[in-house]
């Protein structure tokens, strides 16, 4: 990284720098008050014992030591979360890009199809969870009903500890692909048409065009989806809370759920903050790796 003086000493660069600071100033000021503020407050709380009813008591690293060395549920939740993210992210990216390519065309009724694919995104997680509880129902669920003629099941989608997490993955992918489709779609719209025109003159196959134009052009968008997906899947909470409560046998206890449980069911906000910052360390590292890896030489 270049030093401050590199920018300051050159009149043009200085001007650009000061303008840029002005551009980001509203975001920065806002973030200091409402993003960094709560974040650092919570960092402080991770070194305390705090039940929200009485003032926090500083206890140094005790929470960290306890969580990392003497808390089997934390490790279980971390393993579950990692597995969940590893299943959700690739599926989500592949399917949403496929959908974006599918609906990126001016055919009659395309607005309708786009809207249908986007529906799950805007339906509240409460409603979605309840519909899927019904779809997955052991007795009368639609999925078991469809499988019955094939002599499969009935399957206990959410009650079997070996299956529950995967069932939640399927639901999350269904709910999430519409959103990433929209981002990919906007990304596709940003690719200049002349690139394709040039490739067509060269007689490139559709697959060739995808590999050499579409995919590389979408790289910034893919980075965005990957990083944002990592951040959100690692914090997954809503459907766990509404559908499985972390069970059966802790098989769907995610870190996000654990944090909620410690904070607002056990009133152990200090410990919840500790878990949150360990999670932060993991997500931050993954995001930096993602950026470096995918950004390549940039």
């Amino acid at each position: 990284m270049r030093g401050f003086l590199y920018y300051w000493k050159n009149k043009g660069r200085r001007r650009t720098m000061l303008t840029a600071y002005l551009f980001i100033a509203p975001v920065l000021i806002y973030a200091i008050a409402f993003n960094f503020g709560p974040m650092f407050a919570s960092l402080y709380l991770s070194f305390t014992r705090y039940n929200m009813l009485t003032p926090p008591q500083f206890i140094g690293l005790a929470n960290y030591v306890r969580v990392l060395t003497d808390d089997p549920v934390f490790w279980t939740s971390l393993k579950n979360t990692a597995q969940y993210a590893l299943e959700v992210l690739p599926l989500n990216i592949a399917i949403s890009l496929g959908l974006a390519l599918l609906v990126n065309r001016a055919v009659r009724g395309i607005a309708f199809f786009r809207a249908v694919y986007y529906l799950p995104v805007v339906t509240s997680i409460i409603a979605v969870s309840m519909i899927w509880l019904w779809l997955y129902d052991y007795n009368i669920g639609l999925i078991n009903l469809i499988l019955e003629p094939f002599r499969i099941g009935p399957i206990d989608w959410l009650g079997d500890p070996r299956l529950a997490l995967h069932s939640l993955v399927i639901m999350r992918v269904w709910k999430g692909v519409g959103w990433n489709m929209v981002i990919y779609l906007a990304g596709l719209q940003g690719i200049p048409l002349y690139l394709y025109e040039a490739a067509e003159i060269d007689g490139a196959s559709p697959w060739r065009k995808f590999l050499s134009i579409t995919w590389p052009s979408l790289r910034p968008v893919t980075i965005y989806i990957l990083i944002m997906g990592t951040i959100s899947t690692f914090q997954t909470f809503g459907e766990i809370y509404a559908m499985t409560g972390g069970g059966p046998l802790d098989s769907t206890t995610t870190v996000g759920f654990l944090i909620y449980q410690r904070a607002f069911q056990y009133y152990s906000m200090g410990e919840a903050s500790t878990v949150a910052f360990i999670l932060f360390g993991i997500i931050f590292t993954l995001s930096v790796v993602n950026m470096k890896f995918f950004q390549g030489t940039e």
Binding site: G247, P248, L249, D250, Q261, Q265, Y266, Y267
Partner: peptide
Amino acid sequence: PKWVQIRDIVSRYLERAMRGV
């Protein structure tokens, strides 16, 4: 004062017994 946590620990292990684990 710690009943909620006690209860959750107990029920997690009750579940293990009921599932035959």
